[in-house]
Amino acid sequence: MKRNAIVPYFLIMVMGLVLVFFLSVKGVGDSKEIAQGDDDTEQVVFDPEEKSKSCISCHGDNLEGKGNIPGLVNTELSKDELIDVLKNGRNGDAGMMPGGLVAGNEEAMAEWILTLE
Rank of each mutant, 00 (worst) to 15 (best):
Arg3Asp: 13
Arg3Trp: 07
Asn4Tyr: 02
Asn4Leu: 06
Ala5Thr: 12
Ala5Met: 11
Ile6Asp: 13
Ile6Asn: 11
Pro8His: 00
Phe10Ser: 13
Leu11Tyr: 12
Leu11Ala: 13
Leu11Ser: 03
Leu11Trp: 11
Leu11Gln: 09
Leu11Asn: 06
Ile12Phe: 10
Ile12Tyr: 08
Ile12Gly: 01
Met13Val: 07
Met13Tyr: 04
Met13Asn: 04
Met13Asp: 02
Met15Val: 15
Gly16Tyr: 01
Gly16Thr: 13
Leu17Gln: 07
Val20Glu: 05
Leu23Ile: 12
Ser24Lys: 09
Val25Arg: 11
Val25Tyr: 05
Gly27Thr: 14
Gly27Phe: 10
Gly29Met: 12
Asp30Tyr: 09
Ser31Asn: 09
Ser31Met: 14
Lys32Gly: 14
Glu33Pro: 00
Glu33Gln: 15
Ile34Ser: 04
Ile34Phe: 15
Ala35Gly: 06
Gln36Tyr: 05
Gly37Trp: 03
Gly37Met: 05
Asp38Pro: 00
Asp38Gln: 02
Asp39Val: 15
Asp39Leu: 13
Asp39Glu: 15
Asp40His: 10
Thr41Met: 13
Thr41His: 07
Thr41Pro: 03
Gln43Glu: 12
Gln43Val: 10
Val44Asp: 06
Val44Ala: 11
Val45Cys: 06
Phe46Trp: 06
Asp47Trp: 06
Pro48Thr: 06
Glu49Phe: 05
Glu49Trp: 01
Lys51Pro: 04
Lys51Phe: 10
Ser52Met: 01
Ser52Pro: 03
Ser52Thr: 02
Ser54Arg: 11
Cys55Glu: 07
Ile56Tyr: 00
Ile56Asn: 00
Ile56Cys: 00
Cys58Thr: 11
His59Pro: 06
His59Ile: 13
His59Asp: 06
Gly60His: 09
Gly60Tyr: 08
Asp61Tyr: 03
Asn62Trp: 03
Glu64Met: 08
Glu64Trp: 00
Glu64Ala: 10
Glu64Ser: 10
Asn68Arg: 03
Asn68Phe: 09
Ile69Gln: 09
Pro70Asn: 07
Gly71Asp: 14
Val73Cys: 00
Val73Gly: 03
Val73Arg: 12
Asn74Asp: 10
Thr75Glu: 11
Glu76Gly: 12
Leu77Asp: 01
Ser78Met: 07
Lys79Ile: 02
Asp80Tyr: 04
Asp80Glu: 15
Glu81Gln: 12
Leu82Ala: 00
Leu82Trp: 00
Asp84Tyr: 04
Asp84Ile: 01
Lys87Val: 14
Lys87Tyr: 05
Asn88Met: 01
Asn88Tyr: 04
Asn88Val: 02
Gly89Glu: 04
Arg90Val: 07
Asp93Asn: 10
Gly95Phe: 03
Met96Asn: 11
Pro98Ser: 08
Pro98Phe: 03
Leu101Gly: 15
Leu101Gln: 15
Leu101Glu: 13
Leu101Ser: 08
Asn105Ala: 01
Asn105Phe: 01
Asn105His: 15
Glu106Lys: 08
Glu107Thr: 00
Ala110Cys: 10
Ala110Arg: 00
Glu111Ser: 14
Leu116Lys: 13
Glu117Phe: 06
